[in-house]
């Protein structure tokens, strides 16, 4: 914290020191449960080679769609790969796509939001129009179009989802900038001759950080969902790489849907659990970081 003195005023109405934040966060039971599950999932993703019982890419042509057994806890898929091992490896894809996409959205949203909020005028107007344009397209259709055009490589999936997800963070940062500009510490920084970059970086952004952290968390949840939808439709992560979404792709086949639920239901639950936990985390962070916020999903 470089601007401890700046925060003096806020400290009284809402304590933002890390211990107070942590205390408030722990009171949010579901959020705490969410973070425990997420940490477990991250450990599973990191140590996937040690946890997975089999090679997730090994094709056993003679044993397609085999039922669960002690060797293959969730059976074998369409071309005889171990479903359980793929499920474990897929956590790497979902989590990394979620985090990196949200990171891309964060960078674009903060940079453009700062420019629009700080300078206002024509820059603000043009960026606002661009944001309107982005929002007027059904994200999933345009994302499919772009990913297909650029190639369905995992990096493209991450970047495209990220690039199309900046509008929320942009609007948030822009709004925060506009309201923070009305405050005295901004005026004092400017009159002391600080450069626009320095004012934004040292004075405006640190004050907007709570709201941005919450928005990025929720963005991560959305990005995981988008990746799974794309991969389910066959326009995202491509086999042999396993993603929870592309594991569900097989269930579009009526016979697999009916006869092999253990093949498609676990990845579905995995997506739901992960996204739910990230959303709980976001909700808990909102309550903990920004107790005065009225915008929260939880209003107590």
């Amino acid at each position: 914290m470089t601007n401890e003195s700046n925060n003096q005023e806020q400290l009284q109405e809402s304590d933002v020191t890390s211990s107070a934040v942590w205390k408030r966060f722990r009171k949010h039971k579901v959020a705490t449960a969410g973070i425990v599950i997420l940490v477990t999932l991250i450990l599973v993703a990191v140590f996937a080679p040690f946890i997975a019982p089999n090679d997730p890419y090994e094709v056993r042509t003679g044993r397609r769609l085999e039922a669960p057994s002690s060797e293959f806890p969730l059976g074998l898929d369409r071309i005889g790969r171990c479903t359980f091992s793929r499920l474990i490896y897929a956590s790497r894809i979902s989590l990394s796509v979620g985090v990196i996409s949200a990171g891309v959205s964060l960078i674009i949203g903060v940079v453009l939001g700062s420019i629009a909020g700080y300078y206002g005028g024509i820059a603000d107007h043009l960026l606002g129009r661009l944001a309107d344009g982005m929002l007027s397209l059904p994200a999933i259709v345009i994302i499919m179009t772009i990913v297909l055009a650029l190639g369905t490589h995992i990096l493209n999936v991450m970047v495209v989802i990220g690039v199309l997800g900046w509008v929320g963070i942009f609007r948030l940062v822009r709004g925060q900038m506009l309201s923070l500009r009305e405050q005295e510490f901004y005026l004092s920084a400017v009159s002391l001759g600080a450069s626009p970059f320095k004012v934004v970086k040292d004075h405006l952004l640190p004050n907007a950080i709570s709201a941005v952290i919450v928005a990025v968390t929720l963005r991560t949840a959305a990005a995981i969902l988008t990746e799974s939808t794309l991969s389910f439709l066959g326009f995202g992560i491509q086999p042999p790489l396993a993603s929870w979404g592309n594991m569900l792709n097989a269930a579009q086949n009526q016979s697999i849907l009916v006869n092999n639920p253990y093949m498609w239901a676990p990845p579905g639950f995995a997506i739901a659990l992960t996204v739910l936990c990230v959303n709980f985390l976001g909700d808990g962070l909102r309550d903990a970081l920004d107790p005065t916020s009225q915008l929260g999903i939880k209003q107590d």
Binding site: S228, F232, N279, F280, I297
Partner: peptide, 23 residues
């Protein structure tokens, strides 16, 4: 329910519904 609704992918709900109610 609203937390679940924003967290469960729609295709999973759809497939689950087809599996249970249609199949």
């Amino acid at each position: 329910t609203s937390f679940l609704a924003i967290s469960i992918p729609s295709f999973f709900v759809g497939l689950g519904a087809v599996y249970i109610f249609s199949s």
